[in-house]
Structures are given as C-alpha cells and as structure tokens.
C-alpha cells in the first residue's frame, strides 16, 4: 500500500508500469513463500510437508485439464468457453478470479466464479443445468473443478480486489459480513467463533483469522488440493464443510446467501496475493 501511494505521487505513467510489474501471475509456492517471509503466522506454516510439496501439487494437473476443457468446443452448441465473460471481457481469464464475486450487467446479479461458469456453460455452450458437466460440482475429475482450478490459477500472486463500485456488490458484502457473525443452531456457532482469533486451534488444526489478511488470503485460496481428501476442492465445498461443522443447515451453492458470504470473505483478504491453486490439510 505504501509503495502504491508513493508511486501515485510520482505520476500516473510510473504507477502504471509499477502496477503491471507488481501484478504478475506467480507460482503459488512462491506466493506462499513470500507471505511466510513477510509475516509470522502459525496458520501459514502449520504444515511443513504441504509447503514442501507445493510444486508437486496435483491441482496443477487439474488446472491443465481445465485449460483444455475451457478451449474445447463442447456442449449442444459445440462452442468453447472462450467467449465467456468472467468480468474482464469475453475470454479473459488472467486476473479475473481475484476480482470475483462481482456484479454482472447481463444477469443483474453479483456472481462468484462457480455461478458464472454455470451461466456460461448453459447460455453459451447450451448445457442444461442437469447435465453432469454442470451439475457435478465436487471432485478433481469434475469439469467444474477443472475449469475453476484453471481460471483461478491465472490469478495466482495477484492481490484480491473484488470490486465494490456497484451498490449491489457492497450490499452483498455487508450481508455476508452479517452472515459471518451470525450465531445460530444447536451449538450457537458463527463463522466468527472459530475465525476471529490468531493461532487458535480446533483440535489439531490451526485456524485462520479473518482479521489478518495475510492469513485470510490462504484461507480463501481455493481451489486447493486437500491432502486429507485427495481431491481438489472449491470455496463452495469449504463453506459446506464449515456449515456442517457448525450444525447449521446446508447452504445452497450459487444462492445469493452463499455469494454474499464469499463477497465478504474475499473483501477481507483485499490486497493480499492469492495462492492458486493451493494445497491444504
């Protein structure tokens, strides 16, 4: 941030060249390495083995498969996804993920990556929502995880920067904040119960703190290969798991409630570089 201000003072041209220099896609292991160098965090360093194995992350294969799928002519309309607008214009993949969720004029909604992909696969490629290509959301072998992992990987190292210009983006973020702090259910849990302290553990797992953006960036860096599950997992899958642990009902993927929560959690990591794809416990 300090660098940015100094540069702004030095003039727009300098700012632009600086910004484009800083905003480069970086391998996830380098992003994590630099974060750990700059910050001391039990959460970031809790699994030495995962850190060491980052370059061999199976999710990198998933991303490659996703790229092929993205460019392949598929579905009833036999078209690729190369005209899909993920927020920065048709076909643009680089840097889109760190700027989601965002408001889309064509649907009048704030959408996350998963719901936007569903939109593109149905409206451009002609798939029906019931087709397995669209409907199967979980597992490294699903089209959805392959595509998400590819698209997200093209934002690795870029700072989270979800837009807040449209009033709906702001409204969704604020509702998501309420949801994050919202206690309910037979255990009185909210997300904040477990994610507003630093270095605390649930059993043996170190919990990320949403108020520490350098921790939270790793927390929300999905897709990630979950070693314990031997599968690449999405944000949606993580949210499902946390609500399950909270003894609260299942949130509907793609619902505005789910997107609101993601708008808040992405905003909370603002400015910190994304680690994509990540490797988690």
């Amino acid at each position: 941030m300090r660098i940015k201000n100094a540069v702004r003072a030095a003039g727009i041209a300098a700012f632009l060249s600086m910004a484009s220099h800083a905003a480069q896609v970086q391998p996830p292991e380098d992003v994590l390495g630099e974060l750990i160098e700059r910050n001391s965090s039990d959460y970031l360093t809790q699994s030495e083995q995962n850190i060491m194995m980052m370059p061999d992350n199976p999710a990198l294969w998933t991303a490659d498969e996703g790229e092929a799928l993205f460019r392949e002519e598929r579905g009833p309309n036999n078209t690729s996804l190369e005209t899909c607008d993920l927020g920065k214009g048709p076909g643009v993949v680089e840097g889109v993920y760190v700027e989601l969720p965002r408001y889309f004029e064509d649907t009048g909604r704030v959408m996350d990556l998963e719901s936007r992909l569903v939109y593109c696969m149905t409206s451009i490629q002609g798939f029906s929502p019931e087709d397995p290509e669209v409907k199967t959301r979980h597992g490294s072998d699903s089209d959805m995880m392959k595509l998400q992992t590819f698209i997200a990987s093209r934002s690795s190292g870029l700072p989270w920067n979800p837009p807040m210009d449209h009033p709906l983006e702001k409204a969704m973020r604020d509702a998501g904040e309420v949801m994050f702090y919202r206690r309910a259910g037979t255990s009185d849990f909210s997300c904040a119960t477990c994610h507003t302290n630093t270095s605390k553990r649930i059993r043996a797992s170190v919990l990320p703190n949403i108020n520490e953006p350098h921790e939270w960036t790793k927390a929300i860096s999905w897709p990630a290969f979950r070693v314990g599950q031997q599968n690449v997992r999405s944000s949606t899958h993580r949210i499902r798991g946390c609500y399950w642990q909270m003894r609260q009902p299942q949130i509907i993927p793609g619902s505005d409630a789910a997107i609101a929560l993601m708008s808040y959690w992405t905003d909370a990591a603002r400015g910190q570089p994304a680690i994509l794809p990540d490797k988690k416990r």
């Binding site: 409204a171 949801m179 919202r182 009902p249 949130i251 509907i252 619902s255 505005d256 409630a257 609101a260």
Partner: peptide, 16 residues
C-alpha cells in the same frame, strides 16, 4: 445488512 442477510437466508431460501 441485517435485513438482507435474513432475507437471503429465509426468503430467498439460501439454505435447505
């Protein structure tokens, strides 16, 4: 924000 959160949860059925 409080109203919207409740609206998304209960009226829009953001949960099962």
């Amino acid at each position: 924000p409080e109203e919207l959160a409740d609206y998304l949860i209960f009226e829009m059925e953001g949960f099962d």
